[in-house]
């Protein structure tokens, strides 16, 4: 009995804190989405569906679509760059591997804002990249490198690529490369061996990498805000605008609820896929 009490006492502090300041606020997002706003920028009395009706405004589907599109592109590029990159690390000598992994992590010790800012300075109309591109004739003086979807995508890839590299490296490092030799001996081409042996072999790593990039990408806010223009806004920007400049909290809550569902969906799919896979295996 005393033991149970002790165990209970040990879990209570963090449990209570997280229930209060994490679980409850998250559930509140879904509740407040059905509340009206009042003029003071607070949450009004009673219940309403009007916030959800306003989300039908043709502006929103375009922003939701752009958020999905940019996140998918970013994930795809990270996986496509991450596989050969991690392959190269995994096949290096052990000492080399440690050095290379260190080199991947070091830039990410720096503050996230600073990395985004470094790119803003490079892509700036008066910045170095524009200068170089104009002098070699690849751009005209009025080419705009900043404030468009391309800039946003580029920096999203820059930010999230290490999140893809780590799980991919972990999977490739464990992969048994003699399986590839076996496939080639049995007459398969390099391309087929890659597609039918290597990719299925590192499936778990690919799946984790997709989640690690896709989830934060969907919630991007700083990158489109600093490097994107009005035509490259993402869901995150709208949430921040509604929460700070326009101060319509129920509206911000409804958009957050939408994003929350959007984030949970890929996690759910991945869990289901894993479970089915497990059951399928003997």
């Amino acid at each position: 009995m005393l033991r149970r009490l002790k165990e209970w006492l040990l879990s209570i502090p963090s449990l209570a804190w997280l229930v209060f300041f994490f679980l409850l606020p998250t559930l509140m997002v879904f509740v407040i989405a059905f509340k009206p706003a009042n003029l003071l920028g607070d949450i009004g009395e009673g219940w309403t569906l009007s916030t959800w009706v306003e989300l039908g405004n043709p502006n929103y589907p375009a922003i939701v679509w752009r958020t999905l599109r940019l996140s998918f592109y970013c994930t795809a590029v990270c996986i496509l760059l991450g596989i050969p990159f991690s392959y190269c690390i995994a096949r290096a000598s052990e000492k080399c591997q440690r050095w290379l992994l260190m080199l991947v992590i070091i830039p990410f010790w720096t503050n996230f804002l600073i990395r985004v800012f470094a790119w803003k300075a490079i892509l700036h109309p008066e910045g170095i990249l524009k200068h170089v591109l104009v002098s070699v004739g690849l751009a005209t003086p009025d080419t705009m490198l900043l404030y468009n979807e391309g800039a946003v995508l580029l920096v999203m890839v820059y930010t999230y690529l290490p999140f893809a590299i780590m799980p991919l490296y972990a999977a490739i490092e464990k992969f048994d490369f003699s399986l590839i030799d076996a496939a080639l001996d049995l007459g398969s081409t390099v391309a087929t061996a890659f597609r039918r042996v290597f990719v299925p072999g590192i499936r778990r790593g690919i799946q984790t990498a997709i989640l690690m990039v896709l989830i934060p990408a969907l919630g991007s806010y700083v990158i489109p805000d600093i490097l994107g223009g009005p035509t490259s806004e993402m869901l995150g920007n709208k949430i921040a605008q509604r929460a700070s400049t326009d101060r319509n909290l129920p509206h911000a809550a409804a958009l957050s609820a939408l994003l929350c569902l959007g984030v949970m969906l890929p996690m759910l799919v991945s869990t289901l896929v894993l479970r089915r896979k497990k059951r399928g295996e003997p």
């Binding site: 963090s14 449990l15 994490f22 606020p25 998250t26 509140m28 929460a243 809550a253």
Partner: peptide
Amino acid sequence: KFHNGLIYMPLVMPDLLMGMSLLLFFVA
């Protein structure tokens, strides 16, 4: 098990959602 889930969830939650939900909580 529940405790474990609560510890893991903030690790996967995008910052933006966490900030937003805490703001709503503080205001409420």
